[in-house]
Computed example of a mutant assay.
Amino acid sequence: MTPAPWLEMRLRVAEQAAATLADEFFGAEVWLVGALTEGLAHQKSDVDLLLITQEPVAEPRSRLVHGIRVDIRAVSWDAVNAWRILLDSFTVTRDDIETFRTVRTRLSDLTLLRTARPLTPAPYLEPSRVLEPGRRATYQRWALADRCETAASLAEDLLGLAQAGLYPHADLVWTQLARVLAQAETVAAGAPLLGEKWLPSLMAVGHDSDRFKAVPELPQPRWSTAAAHSPFFATVQARLADALFVLWPSDADPEPVDEAGLGGFGWLPQHYRDGWFLRRGDARVPLSNGQIRTWRKAAARRART
């Protein structure tokens, strides 16, 4: 497919701005970051550049190049290396999530690394890759865990809103959950965690016949009976489990699990370094590989009813 002319123009502007910055800041590197590196842009998109220097420098002002705004963020190599350290391994456990809190606050920076493409000579990097495969895989795990945490928070809100009879408010959160779920699926498929507006394009990656794919709608909820009977929520449970199985596949034999107690509204799966668990609010219930397979199968069955 021929790239859109506004995409090609922005790539040329990025290269021109990078060359100018390299002259202004001797020895610095300039990386193109964000959605543009994934081939995503519209006719009003800005160009985002990362200027990496040995010592901290004042943030260069945004500039217009051929009428296109170029935003520049200046960071030191020390900062970039600190981001890289967070991608050395997926370390979060159920008993110690302090690192996860740190990673979540820096996830936008880590996404810059995941999308970065060097525009100036970088002798220690492959021409089109800033992160090696191992760190890219770790980014994928952190990003998916982040979306699972966000989904769990929204599910807790939904339960509270439904119990309070605030159904119009719950409808809004339900729509938001549909987008978070779609983000989880695109991250599991290898996409960076970009803004929601890019979901139709990210969901179409790997589907040669589709340029865009709509964010799947969730089943019509029945808030008045949600706490006691919520088959509509099972779709969320099964899809989130499937996204996690992409990164943590299991062929363990199914094992019994309390489907009635752990399959109700609000329970969602997650995987940390120490294994699987289900979460609802502040409650966390560890499951074995065999139990999570049984739980996921039951969720898929409920979703079909």
Rank of each mutant, 00 (worst) to 15 (best):
F26N: 08
Q183P: 03
T93K: 08
D251Q: 13
F232W: 15
G206M: 07
D253L: 13
L154F: 11
V257K: 12
T20Y: 04
E29V: 01
R284E: 14
V285D: 00
L268K: 05
R273K: 15
R239T: 05
A189Q: 13
I97N: 07
L125H: 14
R61M: 05
L218I: 11
A35L: 05
E132L: 10
L268V: 15
I97T: 05
G266R: 10
A14N: 01
A252F: 08
T305W: 06
P216N: 07
A152P: 04
E126D: 12
R63L: 11
L87M: 06
T53Q: 05
G160L: 09
D88S: 06
L36M: 05
Q54A: 14
E126Q: 12
Q220S: 12
S288T: 15
A151H: 07
A298R: 09
P121T: 12
M9F: 02
H271S: 01
A283S: 13
L158W: 02
V257G: 08
L218F: 08
A182M: 12
L287N: 00
S250Y: 04
A74F: 00
T115A: 08
S250A: 04
L262C: 08
A226W: 03
D95I: 06
T102M: 09
W31P: 02
R136A: 15
A260P: 00
S108Y: 04
Q140C: 04
L194P: 01
A189H: 10
L199R: 03
Q140P: 02
R135S: 02
F245N: 03
T91S: 13
F90L: 03
D78F: 05
L244K: 12
R69G: 01
T20E: 15
A303G: 05
A226S: 12
R296C: 05
D253Q: 15
A241G: 14
A182K: 13
S250L: 00
E98M: 06
A17I: 11
A41Y: 05
V173T: 14
K297A: 15
R136G: 06
Q183E: 15
R94S: 11
S230K: 05
R141T: 03
V30L: 07
P216F: 10
L131S: 02
A170F: 00
V70W: 07
Q163I: 05
T175C: 02
F277L: 15
D88W: 01
E24C: 09
T37R: 09
S45W: 06
D23L: 12
R280Q: 15
R61C: 03
A214T: 13
L7C: 00
T2C: 02
V75G: 01
G275F: 11
A152E: 07
A182T: 11
Q220C: 08
A58E: 13
E185H: 08
D282M: 09
A204D: 07
L287C: 03
Q140F: 00
V187D: 00
A79E: 06
R69P: 00
E196L: 13
R302F: 05
A178V: 10
D251H: 09
R63V: 14
P249W: 07
V92W: 05
A143T: 03
P231N: 11
A204H: 09
A227K: 00
Q220R: 15
L247D: 02
